[in-house]
Simulated scan of single mutants.
Amino acid sequence: MARHDASELAHRLGREAEAVCRHYLSSGKRAGRYWLVGDVQNSAGRSMFVRLTGPESGKGAAGKWTDAATGEHGDLLDVIRESCGLIDFRDVTEEARSFLSLPRSEPDPHPNPRAGRTPAGSTESAQRLFAMAQPIGGTVVETHLRKRAITALHETGSLRFHPRCYYRPEGHAPTETWPAMIAAVTDLGGVQTGAHRTWLLPNGSGKAPVETPRRAMGNLLGHGVRFGVADDVLAAGEGIETVLSARSGLPHMPMMAALSAAHLAAILFPATLKRLYIVRDADPAGDGARDRLVERARGVGIEAIVLSPVLGDFNEDLRQLGIDALRSALRVQIVPEDVSRFFAM
């Protein structure tokens, strides 16, 4: 899109500044000539202010905003990008056109090959999405996890919250926005290689009613979502909730979620690792991942121990049987020397 076209969109949005704010910055409210909100990601608060009236351009233009807490500033296209969690600028302009009831833009017949675009689903896209999100404390993500009986939320810096994360259905259905848990996938050196999104209901009571409420992006193979720093001992499982549930009973043990059975079987081992606990899901895919991972670990001299749930997975154990039963079941499955190191007394 040409710069002139982007400016025209920004001007059109500025003419509808209050309507834009009510839609994309719904956590805020009007105060005189301004819309007050916590930040450009639509958090509650009053540090960011958007001008609702003024000229189309220049000083004091309608739609211009400033965050007094961070010094950030921009226009309403930036609001749409950040609040929706969009990466590619074309998606931002299409969202703006949709809001303004304008026709979709035509593809550029002579695209500039030098124009940098972040490929959808790339590592860079994953890094940018995670950077847009905020810590989970006091958010819908924390509410969701606590409703799943997960209260061990220490060392969860790999998890963040995005209030309006873009969800693109398959086919030609319209794009939606939902709150989402954003998880950083990192390699052994702590470098982010991907991200995992879990779309949630606005009250945190469950997952959003979309066809695929969980999606990953970036480079996942061998890597995972990490809780704590592994040295000689690591526990690894499939899902984030399963791993955090096991960590409720073993709060000091470093753990990672590989996000699927296939990826669990292919995790990379830290050079210092001596013992690997495999947080198993009780299903055929989980059994296959367990067997392949045990074989790989033992092949390089790493002790492999399987942690099995009583029910279908450790979150089901936690919710149905309670934390005391979960701790008792885990205690008898780990080696004696690890009880004193990692078990919650």
Rank of each mutant, 00 (worst) to 15 (best):
F227D: 02
F227S: 01
G228S: 07
G228M: 11
G228D: 02
G228N: 08
V229N: 12
V229D: 08
V229R: 09
A230Y: 07
D231N: 12
D231K: 06
D231T: 06
V233M: 03
V233T: 04
A235F: 03
A235L: 02
A235W: 08
A235N: 11
A236F: 11
A236P: 04
A236M: 04
A236W: 05
G237N: 03
E238G: 08
G239E: 00
E241K: 10
E241D: 09
V243F: 02
V243Y: 06
L244T: 07
L244P: 02
L244E: 07
L244M: 12
S245L: 09
A246S: 01
A246K: 05
A246M: 14
R247K: 14
R247W: 14
G249L: 05
L250W: 03
L250K: 06
P251A: 05
P251K: 02
H252A: 15
H252R: 15
M253E: 10
M253T: 05
M253S: 09
P254L: 13
M255C: 15
M255N: 01
M256V: 14
A257C: 04
A257Q: 03
A258L: 01
L259M: 14
L259F: 10
S260G: 10
S260L: 08
S260M: 04
S260N: 05
A261K: 05
A261P: 04
A262I: 02
L264V: 01
A265M: 07
A266K: 11
A266Q: 13
A266Y: 00
L268E: 11
L268F: 01
F269I: 10
F269S: 13
A271P: 01
A271D: 15
A271M: 13
T272V: 06
T272M: 01
T272A: 15
L273Y: 09
L273P: 08
K274Q: 15
R275N: 10
R275A: 14
I278Q: 03
V279M: 07
R280S: 06
R280C: 14
R280L: 06
D281Q: 13
D281L: 10
D283G: 01
A285F: 08
G286R: 02
D287C: 02
D287E: 09
G288C: 06
A289W: 12
A289P: 12
R290L: 08
R290P: 00
D291W: 00
D291K: 05
R292I: 00
L293M: 07
L293S: 11
V294H: 02
V294F: 01
E295L: 13
R296F: 11
R296S: 07
R298H: 06
R298Y: 00
R298Q: 15
G299P: 09
G299M: 10
G299Q: 14
V300A: 13
V300T: 15
V300R: 15
V300W: 14
V300P: 01
G301N: 06
G301S: 07
E303Q: 13
E303N: 05
E303L: 08
E303K: 11
I305Q: 13
I305S: 00
I305L: 10
V306R: 01
V306D: 02
V306L: 00
L307S: 13
L307V: 12
S308M: 09
S308T: 08
P309D: 14
P309F: 11
V310M: 12
V310N: 05
V310G: 02
V310E: 15
L311I: 07
L311S: 10
L311T: 06
G312F: 00
G312P: 00
G312D: 07
G312Q: 08
